[in-house]
Design a protein around this nucleic acid. Sequence first.
DNA 1: TGGTTAGCAGACCC
DNA 2: AGGGTCTGCTAACC
Length: 249
Amino acid sequence: METFVKKRSFISEARSPQKKIKLESDEGMEQDEEDEEFSHPVPWQKIEAEGLDCDYALLFSKEEADNLFKQLEEEVVYSTGEEAKVQVFGKVYDIPRKQATYGDAGLTYTYSRVTRLANSWTPTLEYIRDAVTKTTGRAFNFVLVNRYKDGQDHMGEHRDDEKELDPLCPIASISLGAPRDFIFRHRDARGKQSLRQIEPVKLELAHGSLLLMNSPTNTFWYHSLPVRKKSSLPRINLTFRRIVVDRKK
DNA sequence: TGGTTAGCAGACCC
DNA sequence: AGGGTCTGCTAACC
């Protein structure tokens, strides 16, 4: 049975998923927003299930996505050593992909018991961040970069539920490079005697695409990027987030 | 207190 | 026949 979300099935109106509100401006950012800079509005596909709310769109053309991928390959510096390891069920493993963290000065992000300090934004990451902001009306102060060198690199099921994240702000996921399957599973449909039977939601994340994961998706749904042996090319994923800044000294 | 961004084994399906 | 995929399990630590 094919449970993948059909491409182009019900493309909604060509407008942003959130109303064009004025940007929640962080300090001293752009004043008057030229909506026309990223000229044509993007056609969004709504992806919904019980407790799941996502918006999917092709944000960048193939040509632009190609260039962005190339630039990121030159700019991004990935973690090594202890920061490239993860501890699960008492054992330490090498993370089966590469990771990097970028964001506003001084921000930290704790992921699976390892706290990482954000590197300062690179030009390309800033450019993509601003493109995402212009098309969504959301501001982000942090991005987690994951690089999957081929179909063997992967990420297991998890939720993005770190408590330093602003729970109401969507997470914006940009995909560049090889397309990969992306799977959602409801938390009540996991385990042997799962409480309920809920079909997973599966989609393929395309080169240049943007997936917005809106609240409360990450409360109820785990997601993963499973191994795909037939995939041989690299993929870079950027997840833009809003980290709540603790204003205490 | 309870959840686990990892790998692995066994079942299933081409 | 066997490789790819999917699911459930893990049993230490924070």
